[in-house]
Design a protein around this nucleic acid. Structure first.
Lengths: 124, 124
DNA sequence: TCTTGTCCTTGAGTGCACTCGAGGTTCTAA
DNA sequence: TTAGAACCTCGAGTGCACTCAAGGACAAGA
């Protein structure tokens, strides 16, 4: 079973344009029908899922390109793939911690405003 | 006590250029010395801290501008301020959940690669 | 066959958040 | 007094990740 680009876009939850873009950027290599139209396999979709996961966690395209390049080669470079993912993992964890920290500040501010509101009401 | 722009930038952990930019964008209004040089008060620095917190949690500049506008007015609009912050809070929480979810995928992938390495087998 | 919708490529455009440069003024320390 | 650092404004430039448009080829149902 394989998929047209619009199927693939729907299933991956990204736009056709983004799929084109990812291919231009060397993140993806998709087989073609005799017509020249792209035919996505379920392996392609799984790989797009990984790309999307990496993007949504903030990995820049250039790093994704490096990773994609390694995956396209043989399995002798798995240690390098792990290295990229581990480095990324640490960045995500840091980002999560920062977000959580800043979220507390936002919530503190909300709490402050609510207190001001409550006091203003009892006064007037 | 007040601060020069370079002091303010250092204390806020952002660049002088970004401070100029934020002021151009209406996020910030700083008093001037007779020379025309900006003089940041500690209130300004606290406000810059809030701005930085909102930015680091992904609030777009245009929303920050709305919020800044409300803060510049009187306290009668505190409910609207709360509304902006609450909406932002929900977005941050969603983003955190998505990040956490995707982080698990990344970790799963790392685990997979490590298993492949341990077994000495090949597969992407 | 015809029509309408999907797909192709290439190159340009968009939006965001900075970031920089030029040309000039002001401050500060020797 | 004077050299050099810090500051000012304004407009342009940058990097990123898309996003779109034009002009043409291909596909599938009536």
């Amino acid at each position: 079973m394989n998929y047209s680009i619009s199927d693939a876009a729907t299933r991956a939850g990204i736009s056709i344009h983004t799929l084109h873009y990812y291919e231009r950027e060397g993140l993806l290599h998709v087989a073609r029908a005799s017509s020249g139209h792209r035919r996505y396999t379920s392996d392609d979709l799984a790989w797009i899922g990984i790309l999307t996961c990496l993007r949504e966690t903030g990995m820049p395209i250039r790093t994704m390109r490096e990773f994609a390049k390694l995956v396209q080669q043989d399995s002798s470079n798995i240690p390098e793939r792990i290295q990229i993912l581990e480095a990324h993992r640490l960045e995500v964890i840091e980002h999560l911690a920062a977000l959580q920290h800043n979220l507390e500040h936002v919530e503190g501010k909300i709490g402050f405003y609510k207190k001001v509101l409550a006091q203003g009401k009892t006064q007037s």
